[in-house]
Design a protein around this nucleic acid. Sequence first.
DNA 1: AAAATATTTGCAACAAAGTTGCATACTGTT
DNA 2: AACAGTATGCAACTTTGTTGCAAATATTTT
Lengths: 138, 138
Amino acid sequence: MKNDIAEILKRNQLSVTESRAKILELFHESRSALAHADIENKTDESYDRVTIYRTLQTFVEKGIIHTIPTADNSVLYALCKDECTQGKHNDNHVHFICDICGTTYCLDHITVPEINLPKGFTPHCTDVVASGICKNCK
Amino acid sequence: MKNDIAEILKRNQLSVTESRAKILELFHESRSALAHADIENKTDESYDRVTIYRTLQTFVEKGIIHTIPTADNSVLYALCKDECTQGKHNDNHVHFICDICGTTYCLDHITVPEINLPKGFTPHCTDVVASGICKNCK
DNA sequence: AAAATATTTGCAACAAAGTTGCATACTGTT
DNA sequence: AACAGTATGCAACTTTGTTGCAAATATTTT
Ligand SMILES: [Mn+2]
Ligand SMILES: [Mn+2]
Ligand SMILES: [Zn+2]
Ligand SMILES: [Zn+2]
């Protein structure tokens, strides 16, 4: 496991540091999306806020994690499961945010539908975020 | 026009104040979504930041405007055109954010498609935000 | 394995965004 | 015109995110 994590970092031309390994591990362990604050908490504030910001940013650039837009102005991150690479994200799946427990799921098997836009609009990517009650809270 | 604006406020049981009228007018004049900062600028900073925050919050509660989720952690607001009321929003249309000019459009005539969620997930509302190149920037 | 080089980290200082309490000003009502 | 209710602006504060830089750590070279 520890080795797997290091492997992923190396594959992405990132030097293997404690904070990066730990944060990446958190994402692999978690079944749901994580916010910056979640990471601070789950690491017992062992790492500086700035380091976490920079790590998340790096991971997004490398195509290791993707961001999830939310209505309440908080940024969430989750592992990319598709073949995302440096600068080329391809996470065209639906996200679900539970109104009760707040958990955010990547529904990897539900792909975002084609949307018929008006003339003149050329889509580059489409985000679909559903909210409601999740399987654990019903 | 001025009277229309006052009418809308009264209809929503809001007292008619200069800032509320001006901000609501801005939304009616604008063809695109507005951020808090846009409103500060377009009003020449005549109103306190706090007043703008509180006005936007009030308008959202009353169903006069709705928020639009964005990937970059900025909150956008736009007029509700459907029959939204106090606490009951019904803005099930697609939004489009232009990667070039940054303009955010409510595509009022494009309704969000039905999404087939996995067993156990009950959707309450669904946000669809497409991004790409808009009609003005192509 | 040690030295040299490249990269990352943590700190400090800052900037931007959002919140709260309270006195003053304004709106709608009597 | 006076009153009661509400909204505004200010100050003070919190939370979130950014930047420069020296010290620490990781990788490469010898
Ligand atoms: Mn996802
Ligand atoms: Mn809209
Ligand atoms: Zn839940
Ligand atoms: Zn555009």
